[in-house]
Amino acid sequence: MTSEPQLSCAACAAPLAAGDRFCEQCGARSSDEEPAGPGCQACGAPAEALDDEGYCTICGVRERPASNRVELDLVIAAAVSDQGRVHRRNEDAFALGVAGERSVAVVVCDGISSASAGDSAAQSAAAAARETLATAIDAGRDRRDAIGDAIQAAHEAVERVEWTARADRDMPSCTLVAALWYEGEIAIGWLGDSRAYWVAAGDIRQLTTDDSWAEEQIAEGLLTREQASRDPRFHSITHWVGADAPERPPRVVVIRPDRPGRLVLCTDGLWNYAPSPGELGTLVDALPEQAAPAAVARSLTETALARGGRDNITVAVVDVGVE
């Protein structure tokens, strides 16, 4: 009578089946072949021990998602959108267009996480709004009207997003902040809590006021900022882009910068880590004066990641020169 020699794991002595490339008990490699990849970052098990969904079949820990980042560098304007360290997909989006030396259209959106297809909503809204703004620059239209039309186009685009109804999910929706700069003036319009800041020497301002439960309570004098920030509804937004959005014209502000500076648009994935204009200004000021918009956007994104990266992070930066 003959029998196959019993294979066993060199590390823990558990039996191995012929062809096993790692020990299913302790995760030690048993093959001389080159490993297929870096393997489990948590317990060191070889790449073969990771299942199709990235879970380690030894220690159960899932592979961290590969960095998921989109960057666009158009020299005088740039944007970065990063998945962050916690979320498994990026539901933020931006759209950016430069039409000449001093004309920029930029849109940043944040898909609402309790909604279906938040990522598609954000992408569709941003693309549609930017398209409308770009046309407005070409036509030399009134900036306020152009912002209004761009937001209308975003609403229509989100309504066309395909989605599957689920009891625990809202209709597709997103926030939006859009800026249109040409001929020395910048118009900024928004719905929700994505923000725009003006950062210039001696002039650091938040241009937007969040459409949020917290801001409404504070505006009506019902709560102090301190009290509101401790409320679980702090992040609830009161206006957004989507078929189920409350009917209300978007808020628009127009500025005419008297000195060069930077226009920063971002989602709460960044401003959560720098809630006041001062804090954000400090982060921007800490960079070299000649830092390009792309460097500023990357640096702000890295700061948010370093502070936890709990949400998707999107930052758009425009270098605004003055004639």
């Binding site: 948590a42 879970y55 159960g60 820990v61 899932r62 961290r64 916690v86 990266g309």
Partner: peptide, 13 residues
């Protein structure tokens, strides 16, 4: 019962 992990980690328990 599992050994706690860092924020953002996901585990098949």
């Amino acid at each position: 019962d599992v050994a706690p992990r860092e924020v953002g980690d996901e585990m098949l328990v």
